[in-house]
């Protein structure tokens, strides 16, 4: 049984890594507490607040805030708070598309700024990711991309709500661990953790990558395929990497414009061994600290 994830040193709240958090909970009381903390802080800071519900009725969100002593109705009236449903907003139409979504955050942050707010803060209920929603299989890719593509550029604070009652624990672990800041209940360390690098463009992969973790590897590959050549993979804590995972990652890099090799730091022994067995991969995988 994997050990519970330790509470990481929390990044500065206003840093890009501190503004994108996973929030894991398993009952309504925890949900309401996180909601209250988030909204109260946003109101105090003069930020615009948007709540995108999945299974929760919007009026229940407002009621919970009111019960917590927050003037939710007033905030809604003056346009500082809105509660909408994902299926009617960003999931409407052809479903979930990370590229469209990333564009929307730039627009929304600009609109909030134009309305005089000091920033935008958003809660998203992510439970749709466990259902048969078109594009839901790209949720991990999205969570991995937004650190570099959104939070590094836009004054956005986002808490991604993962409700254990609606999503399998293993999936919650994979998604929650893709965030650099975590709140709420601890979660089991996933077999393979993929997360953005805090200080430079790239991904960290830790744990053990095999056939069982192919979805997480595919998400990492999707990030790499669209990322700039300087994007790195940090594999310092990767214990195992199988040939199929390496092939998927190498393919993603090779498919980029110019076919720039994938830069890998702290290459673990299985990767080095696979490169010995398949020297032809040397042209697509570059171990930068060999």
């Amino acid at each position: 049984m994997p050990v519970a994830r330790r509470a990481a040193a929390r990044p500065e709240p206003d840093s890009p890594e501190g503004r994108h958090s996973s929030v894991v909970f398993s009952d309504d009381r925890q949900w309401a507490e996180h909601l209250g903390v988030f909204v109260r802080s946003g109101l105090e800071r003069g930020e615009q607040i948007q709540y995108f519900a999945d299974t929760t009725a919007p009026e229940r969100v407002l009621r919970a805030l009111t019960e917590a002593g927050i003037d939710a109705a007033g905030a809604v009236t003056r346009g500082q708070l809105s509660v909408s449903v994902a299926a009617q907003t960003y999931l409407a139409g052809s479903g979930f598309d990370p590229d469209t979504m990333i564009g929307l955050w730039f627009d929304a942050a600009e609109a909030a700024s134009a309305s005089g707010y000091r920033g935008l803060r958003v809660i998203g209920e992510m439970s749709w990711g466990a259902r048969d929603v078109a594009g839901a299989d790209r949720l991990l890719e999205y969570e991995l991309r937004v650190h570099e593509e959104v939070f590094a550029h836009v004054p956005l604070t986002a808490w991604c709500f993962y409700d254990r009652r609606l999503m399998a624990d293993a999936y919650v672990s994979v998604l929650a661990s893709a965030h650099l800041t975590h709140r709420g209940e601890p979660y089991a360390v996933p077999a393979l953790r993929v997360a953005p690098l805090a200080d430079r463009p790239g991904l960290l992969m830790s744990g053990s990558a095999g056939y069982d973790t192919r979805d997480a590897v595919a998400a990492a590959a999707a990030v790499i395929s669209g990322a700039a050549a300087r994007t790195e993979l940090d594999l310092a804590d990767l214990r195992h990497l199988d040939a199929a995972s390496l092939a998927v990652l190498a393919d993603a890099a090779a498919g980029r414009p110019g076919g720039t090799p994938l830069k890998v730091r702290q290459a673990p022994s299985p990767l080095r061994r696979l490169l010995q067995l398949f020297p032809e991969l040397d042209s697509v995988v570059e171990v930068v600290d060999r």
Partner: peptide
């Protein structure tokens, strides 16, 4: 089975 592959490797 599939879900135990990582723990089997470990």
């Amino acid at each position: 089975g599939e879900r135990a592959l990582a723990s089997v490797r470990d």
